[in-house]
């Protein structure tokens, strides 16, 4: 790395131009040409004073909607051969979604379960082999305790209610991240779900819970260090390939996502899969996760299929 300083003083009088709302081509989302959406779906919604989600967000917690008996046909605009093998998703926007409706944040998280089931069902139907979902970051613990506690309960009930369906539909679940901070009951639920679904192979669902990209690299280095300590590895052999093998995504045959979808309007990675996302195609979507559905998922896949992929020089259409 080389740093150079230019002997040109920066003008302190410069102010950034105001965003040009009349020119949509300047939008960071314009790259994706999303379909026009009805405003009523996201905004014009009656306020609810109760702490429960509105009827439109009511969930089927029996888990029956996970994959469904009849597979979803592939939309005409998508090509089966160009489907990504591994899709990663950052689910976001629950809080804003709830606030717009006068609901607590927990209602937003609750309403986010059904979109996840929809995406899982579509992945199963369309031959996507790995789906990694970022549900809880190592930074999320700084949120209000009541919100974190309700999230933990939601994870537990959702996983518990989905085990039978995952077994039936051939979905294998695997949870990555630092589980030491999770409640004991949730850890037990995770262990049970992983054990019950470990022989399934239709779709691998990787749930990143209390996960951080930097945490992952550090734990991989610790794992390598332990192998050095135990005499299983020589110092001279340590390179990026060795570290790669110790990352938490070693649980899958396809550790590198082809496509990353971020819902909720933010344009950053938020410490998710930092090492693994080097050549991943990004798709940022403004739709808050509770409103994310088949249409948005198809848009993301179509955008992915229209791009040329680069791997540090090589070009792949």
């Amino acid at each position: 790395m080389l740093s150079l300083t230019l002997p040109i003083p920066l003008l302190k009088t410069l102010t950034p131009p105001s965003p040009n709302i009349n020119n949509p081509s300047l939008s960071p989302y314009s790259h994706y040409q999303p379909r026009s959406r009805s405003l009523t779906r996201g905004l014009i919604v009656p306020k609810h004073s109760s702490a429960t989600a509105p009827p439109s967000a009511t969930l089927r917690d029996d888990g029956t909607s996970l994959a469904g008996d009849s597979p979803e046909p592939l939309p005409e605009e998508l090509v089966a051969e160009l489907m990504p093998k591994h899709v990663a998703v950052i689910i976001d926007g629950h809080g804003r979604w709830a606030k717009l409706r006068g609901l607590p944040a927990s209602a937003g998280h609750q309403a986010g379960v059904q979109p996840l089931r929809t995406v899982v069902r579509l992945c199963c139907s369309w031959g996507i082999q790995v789906l990694t979902v970022f549900v809880l970051s190592t930074e999320n613990w700084f949120r209000p305790k009541v919100e974190v506690d309700s999230l933990m309960k939601l994870f537990e009930t959702t996983i518990n209610s989905s085990i039978a369906c995952m077994k039936k539909e051939g979905i294998q679940i695997y949870v990555i991240g630092d589980s030491s901070k999770l409640p004991e009951s949730l850890r037990s639920t995770i262990a049970n779900a992983e054990k019950s679904t470990k022989h399934n192979s239709r779709l691998q669902l990787i749930v990143a819970m209390n996960y951080g990209g930097k945490y992952d690299v550090v734990q991989a280095c610790k794992s390598v260090a332990k192998k050095v300590k135990d005499g299983l590895l020589h110092l001279d052999n340590i390179n990026e390939k060795i570290i790669e093998k110790e990352l938490e995504t070693k649980c899958t045959e396809f550790p590198y996502p082809d496509l990353l979808i971020r819902a909720g309007g933010e344009l950053r990675l938020s410490n998710f899969l930092l090492w693994q996302l080097a050549y991943t195609e990004f798709y940022f979507n403004k739709t808050p996760w509770p409103d994310f559905g088949k249409e948005e998922f198809v848009d993301a896949l179509r955008s992915f299929q229209q791009r040329q992929r680069h791997y540090g020089g090589e070009r792949h259409s």
Partner: peptide, 29 residues
């Protein structure tokens, strides 16, 4: 710490994953 000047930084692939591996190796050694 020089707010009056612009700094140009030139990076290569060696500053990415390879650098993390080197850094880990340095700690071990």
């Amino acid at each position: 710490h020089d707010p009056d000047h612009m700094t140009l930084e030139f990076l290569s692939h060696a500053d990415g994953r390879e650098a993390v591996a080197k850094a880990a190796n340095l700690i071990f050694v």
